[in-house]
C-alpha cells in the first residue's frame, strides 16, 4: 500500500471510529432520557412500572383543584373521562392551567397512588389540545366529550 493511501485509510478509520463512538454515546444518552407517556387509564390499570418517571396527560377534572392557602401546594385530579389520577404539585402553575383544561404533568407515582408532579405543562390555549392529551382522550374513546370544540382552534405561534 502506498504511504499516502495508508495515511488516507488511517484518517478514514479514525473518523469512522470517532463517529461510531459519538453515535454510541448519543444513543446511550437518548435511552437514559426517554420519558414515556401514559394516560390516566393506563396508570389506573397498573401499566406503569413502580417508581418510573413518566408523563401523564389528561383533562383537569371540574371542581378538583384544591389549593393550600399558606403554601404553594396544590392538589387536583386529571382524567380521561374513564379513569382518574390525583396529582400533587408544589409551585406556580402555568397561565393556562384551569379546570376542564388539558394538561401534561411529569413526575412519579408515590406509594399512596398520588402522582407527584415535578412539572406541569398547559401551554396551549383553551381551544387547542396538545397531541398528547388528545391521544389520551382518543385512547379512552372520549375525545368528543368535555368542552372540546372540534374545529376553530387557534394556533399558537
Amino acid at each position: 500500500m502506498k504511504p499516502h493511501r495508508r495515511k488516507k485509510l488511517g484518517s478514514i478509520l479514525f473518523i469512522a471510529l470517532g463517529l461510531s463512538v459519538a453515535a454510541g454515546l448519543t444513543l446511550y444518552a437518548l435511552k437514559q432520557n426517554i420519558n414515556m407517556f401514559f394516560t390516566p387509564s393506563q396508570v389506573a390499570g397498573g401499566e406503569v412500572p413502580k417508581g418510573q418517571h413518566f408523563r401523564i396527560g389528561g383533562m383537569v377534572k371540574d371542581g378538583s383543584i384544591a389549593r393550600e392557602d399558606d403554601s404553594l401546594s396544590v392538589n387536583f385530579v386529571t382524567t380521561d373521562f374513564i379513569s382518574e389520577v390525583p396529582i400533587h404539585y408544589v409551585g406556580i402553575l402555568p397561565d393556562l392551567f384551569r379546570e376542564g383544561q388539558g394538561i401534561v404533568a411529569e413526575g412519579v407515582v408515590d406509594t399512596a397512588g398520588v402522582f407527584q408532579a415535578s412539572k406541569v405543562l398547559a401551554k396551549h390555549d383553551e381551544n387547542y389540545m396538545s397531541p398528547e392529551v388528545k391521544a389520551a382522550l382518543d385512547a379512552a374513546g372520549t375525545s368528543t366529550e368535555g368542552s372540546l370544540p372540534s374545529e376553530g382552534y387557534k394556533p399558537q405561534y
Binding site: A29, L30, Q32, N33, I34, N35, R55
Partner: peptide, 13 residues
C-alpha cells in the same frame, strides 16, 4: 407509544 426526550439528553451530548 408517546414519549418525549428531555433536555438532559441534549445537554449531555
Amino acid at each position: 407509544d408517546l414519549i418525549s426526550i428531555g433536555p438532559p439528553y441534549f445537554n449531555a451530548i
